[in-house]
């Protein structure tokens, strides 16, 4: 007999007992997602600059990378990293696999988002910067990237949410993330409802605020711009 039975179909004690596990798993997810997203952004920035500059050979490599990354599932990428590579002596920890996998995937998405932004900076806009005596590196840094970044914000936000969602497959590289904990609890205690409820709640708490912030930023971007606080 449980005391809480009257109030709920759920076993509250169970939930309370195991919520620290979820918290820990969520922290792990957040940490890896954060590192992965930052690394993805840097990768994407690098790729988009190389593509803008059309650096020979390098740009072909980057195009190949982008196609490989965008046209294969993260799950398979992870299997290859975690189970395949050790066979030729490349041993990676679960966490490294997760971060490398997420960056391999996210880099191409970030690159595409930034490239769209860069494409929207007109040729004559950059020419006007050149005509002021700026070097290519200065034009990229002070003129192209700030504008490209601003127009890319909605896409970058969407990528961020996408990448956090993708972290849910990390349990396949034996990382004790939220899915891993949930699956464990279902397997060991048969507390399916409780385990799933906490799983859903964890992802809600993790992603809803980010999603809301992204929507707000997006709306601001759509209706306003520089020096346009919505009144014009």
């Amino acid at each position: 007999m449980r005391k809480v039975r009257d109030f709920s179909l759920m076993d509250l004690e169970f939930i309370l007992e195991f919520s620290p596990m979820y918290l820990e798993a969520a922290m792990l997810t957040i940490r890896i997602a954060l590192i992965g997203i930052v690394a993805s952004f840097i990768t994407g920035l690098f790729c988009s600059i190389v593509k803008y500059l059309k650096i020979p050979v390098l740009v072909q490599f980057i195009n190949l990378y982008i196609e490989l990354s965008r046209n294969t599932p993260l799950l398979i990428q992870l299997f290859f990293l975690y189970f395949g590579l050790p066979k030729i002596g490349i041993l990676l920890s679960s966490e490294s696999c997760a971060i490398i996998g997420l960056t391999f995937l996210g880099g191409s998405y970030m690159a595409e988002a930034l490239r769209t932004g860069i494409d929207q900076v007109t040729k004559i806009q950059t020419e006007s910067a050149f005509s002021l005596g700026m070097k290519k590196s200065q034009v990229i840094r002070y003129i192209i990237l700030p504008q490209a970044f601003t127009t890319s914000i909605p896409a970058l936000c969407a990528n961020m949410i996408f990448l956090i969602k993708e972290t849910s497959v990390f349990s396949v590289v034996a990382l004790a993330d939220l899915m891993y904990v949930a699956k464990d609890l279902i397997g060991i205690y048969y507390k399916t409802d409780e385990a799933l409820l906490m799983l859903v709640l964890s992802y809600l708490l993790l992603l809803l605020p980010i999603s809301v912030i992204c929507s707000m930023v997006e709306r601001r971007m759509r209706y306003a711009g520089f020096g346009n606080t919505g009144t014009v």
């Binding site: 949410i161 969602k165 993708e166 972290t167 849910s168 497959v169 899915m179 949930a182 699956k183 279902i186 399916t192 409802d193 799933l196 799983l199 859903v200 992802y203 809600l204 992603l207 809803l208 999603s211």
Partner: peptide, 14 residues
């Protein structure tokens, strides 16, 4: 915002 894998778990186990 819900990862597809979470939805899969919900339906499959739930």
């Amino acid at each position: 915002i819900m990862p597809q894998l979470v939805l899969l778990f919900l339906v499959y186990f739930g």
